[in-house]
Design a protein around this nucleic acid. Structure first.
Lengths: 187, 187
DNA sequence: CTTTCAATAGACTGATCGGTCTATTGTCAT
DNA sequence: ATGACAATAGACCGATCAGTCTATTGAAAG
């Protein structure tokens, strides 16, 4: 088994995906992760804001690594459809319970300044990574960055819409049109 | 001055836009709105879940009415750029403090089932209204609905991204590319 | 005038919040 | 073996949580 730090981070990611930052209590986090209360402040001296910010950062780098693997798909249109379909399938298999931990962090509000800042960094990292993938698979450098930003916006927004309506439709609609737009960007 | 019900709803919308549903306490809501505690349960017998759901519903119909006015713009590409620019300007003037109340409701989690359901209805209403506007301004009926869904996704996602990074860039990137895609849908 | 009831002010509940503390156990490296 | 420190278990703190209650005021309708 891993240490308490890793357990806390992994459990925090799961809980904020479901309930948001303010909706996640430390008691539940400790019980769910099987960790002693003191271990929080051993690893995150500034408490919940620190802990959740670290969890968001970890989820951010994980997501970025996943984006990097899409380079192998070779075509921008295929890359964006793969992102949308993966999100749809994950959400559907999950019962529309879990959202994006980065979005949860971004909307955490003024009580959690470190969390919000970290979420901003994570999203910027995703856009940067995706722009690199798109450029490497044939998209013009000037087009890649704004298009990557758009794709991340679509991903986050479709996730909100899909969870609220308990339907994968927003991702299906997005996949087709983003593929069309990706091909238009190439010409 | 309006009655306590209207004050509660308006204040609830403002607070959940900033802090989310779980992050908004009733004590703050009462103080901010200048309302007696008992008035909550006079108008919303089931408490916070009911009250916030009503606030989300109200914000949903307000937003839908705003979308309806965009019919006057006459061109789908102009409609979508107007949405993105309006969101950008509002957010920028606001200091990136307030997000979308419907998104806040959609992510409220299992403690607020009425809120999440109402947020889903509100988003569906937005997509429906926007699809009608796009169809009325020249877009093919089959294309209008998925494109409207995409625009709402972009709006919600760009809002998350913009707030986290305190930058209007996501909306600017989105406006250009959605206009391009709108024109491609017409051909 | 009287009845009715929304609205107000505020005390009060039990539960939970995030955070601090003590004491003990376990596990390394010296 | 000893010292250092992470990890655990759990009591404890003041503050806040959503929700209930009583008492009083105000205003409109009969």
């Amino acid at each position: 088994m891993t240490g308490p730090r890793e357990r806390l981070l992994a459990t925090a990611v799961t809980l904020i995906r479901e309930r948001g930052v303010a909706g996640t209590g430390l008691a539940e986090l400790l019980k769910e992760s099987g960790t002693a209360r003191g271990s929080i402040y051993q690893h995150f001296p500034r408490g919940k804001d620190d802990l959740v910010a670290a969890a968001v950062a970890e989820a951010g780098t994980d997501g970025r690594a996943t984006l990097a693997t899409l380079r192998a798909l070779g075509d921008p249109a295929v890359v964006v459809t793969a992102i949308m379909h993966a999100a749809r399938d994950t959400l559907d298999a999950d019962g529309y319970v879990h959202g994006c931990p980065i979005a949860a962090g971004a909307l955490a509000g003024p009580d959690y300044p470190a969390v919000v800042g970290t979420a901003g960094d994570a999203l910027a990292g995703w856009v940067e990574e995706l722009a690199g993938v798109l450029a490497a698979t044939g998209m013009a450098a000037e087009a890649a960055s704004p298009f990557a930003s758009l794709v991340i916006s679509v991903f986050e927004g479709a996730l909100v819409q899909a969870r609220a309506s308990r339907s994968p439709a927003p991702f299906d609609a997005a996949a087709d049109q983003l593929a069309l737009l990706a091909r238009a960007q190439l010409a």
